[in-house]
Simulated assay, not measured.
Amino acid sequence: MIERIKTQDKILVVRVGRVGDVVMITAALTAILKSFEQAEIHILTSDDGLRVLNNFNKRVTQFYLYNRKLINTGWIKYKLKRVIGLENYTHIFCFETKPSYLKLFSKSQAKIHVNKDGALDKNYAWHCLQTVNQVTGQQMNEWISLKVNEKAVKQSGDIFIENKIDKNVFIIGLHPSFSGLKKFNFRSQKSLHERGWPEENWAELAYTLSEYAKQKGIKVHIIMDLLEEDRALGERIVALSHNVVTLLIPTMNFERYKATLKSMDLLITPNTGPMHVAGALGTKMVALFSVKSPDNSGPYIAAEQYTPLQAEDMPNPDAGLAAITVEYVLDACKNFIHKEKNTVEL
């Protein structure tokens, strides 16, 4: 049933997860904002979600934070259920996959909308967008998107100047890390298999990219912007690459980090949160996947913006991400490297 859109709508959007999980709902959130033009939007999310969606739009006026790992989650759920019941929501869009979240809305009179089971070859962000379209009766075709503020651009620019990085040359970013890399348990080992490309490969790729650019007469600067906890990894890659990579370890600031990602003309990354953030900023990418398919877990962006590489297409897919060869990644990168810097309209 198509809903009549009212000017006094108050809407709750629900997505609790890590950075990449939340970025994936931005296409649907944009569709909600465009369809309910006067509505006030509240968001139930995580600390990571707040970082992603803070300042997303001035009509997003309230955030409720939920941490699934806290011991007192029962008390938190009780308070959330009470608050949600007291708010006069007309619609609740729940983009969580676990049915247990529906219990939080038991005291609300809002119309509740959840993603329906659908084609596994469709991106999660697409399913969220279709949920909104089914409610509004419109067929909005939005991509994931994020904004960068001027203060963050200046902060990123200052770091570039400090490290003698010329923003006018072709900037290539490498992101060799991923969440949980430092942990030692079954889940982290599974993540390493799926998202850990060998540091020797990163170094060889950087060096061969540098040599390729020289042959083509293209000025490039290859950078890594990493957390302090990944410093040792970054330093090893720099050394193995014959120092063709500039390692940045600035104080972590998500807004500044977005500005740095947007400054890159090309980013090479495994399936991580920064992959989704960079995609939402319009950055061109070569993204590496193993086990999970880019069709349903990749960035929801225009096809020409990135090239996904799948370990399962390689001769030894059981090796996980390590099955993807340096040559394979290099060939994909060559399609994006030009003398003229890339520009993407958001």
Rank of each mutant, 00 (worst) to 15 (best):
E200T: 05
E200D: 15
E200V: 05
E204M: 11
E204T: 14
E204D: 15
E204A: 15
A206C: 13
Y207R: 15
Y207I: 12
T208M: 09
T208L: 10
T208Y: 12
T208D: 15
L209A: 10
S210K: 15
Y212E: 11
A213C: 07
A213S: 13
A213N: 12
K214P: 15
K216W: 02
I218G: 07
K219S: 13
V220C: 11
H221R: 05
I222M: 04
I222F: 08
I223D: 02
I223N: 00
M224E: 13
M224H: 08
M224N: 13
D225Y: 07
D225E: 13
D225C: 09
D225R: 02
L226P: 05
L226M: 09
L227G: 11
E228S: 10
D230G: 07
D230R: 02
R231F: 08
A232P: 01
G234R: 00
G234Q: 04
E235A: 12
E235T: 01
E235Q: 15
I237R: 13
I237W: 05
I237C: 08
I237A: 12
V238C: 14
V238K: 12
A239L: 03
A239Y: 00
L240S: 06
S241A: 11
H242L: 07
H242T: 13
N243H: 14
N243K: 14
V244A: 09
V245F: 08
V245T: 08
T246S: 10
T246K: 10
T246D: 08
T246Y: 04
L247E: 07
I249M: 03
M252V: 08
M252T: 08
M252Y: 14
F254W: 05
F254E: 02
E255D: 15
E255M: 12
R256E: 15
Y257M: 08
K258N: 13
K258V: 04
L261N: 11
L261A: 09
K262M: 12
S263C: 06
S263E: 13
S263K: 10
S263G: 04
M264S: 14
M264E: 14
D265R: 05
L266P: 09
L266W: 01
L266R: 09
L267H: 07
I268K: 04
I268E: 08
T269C: 11
T272F: 00
G273S: 06
P274C: 03
M275I: 06
M275K: 03
H276K: 04
V277A: 12
V277Q: 03
A278V: 02
A278R: 00
G279K: 01
G279I: 06
G279A: 04
L281I: 08
G282L: 06
T283G: 04
T283H: 01
T283D: 11
T283Y: 02
K284P: 05
M285A: 06
V286Y: 00
A287Y: 00
L288Q: 08
L288P: 09
F289W: 03
F289C: 01
F289A: 01
S290W: 03
S290Y: 02
V291F: 11
K292L: 01
S293C: 04
S293F: 00
P294K: 03
D295P: 06
D295H: 10
N296M: 02
G298E: 00
P299W: 00
Y300S: 03
I301Y: 01
I301W: 01
I301A: 07
A302L: 10
A302S: 14
E304Q: 14
E304C: 11
Q305S: 14
Y306T: 10
Y306A: 12
Y306R: 11
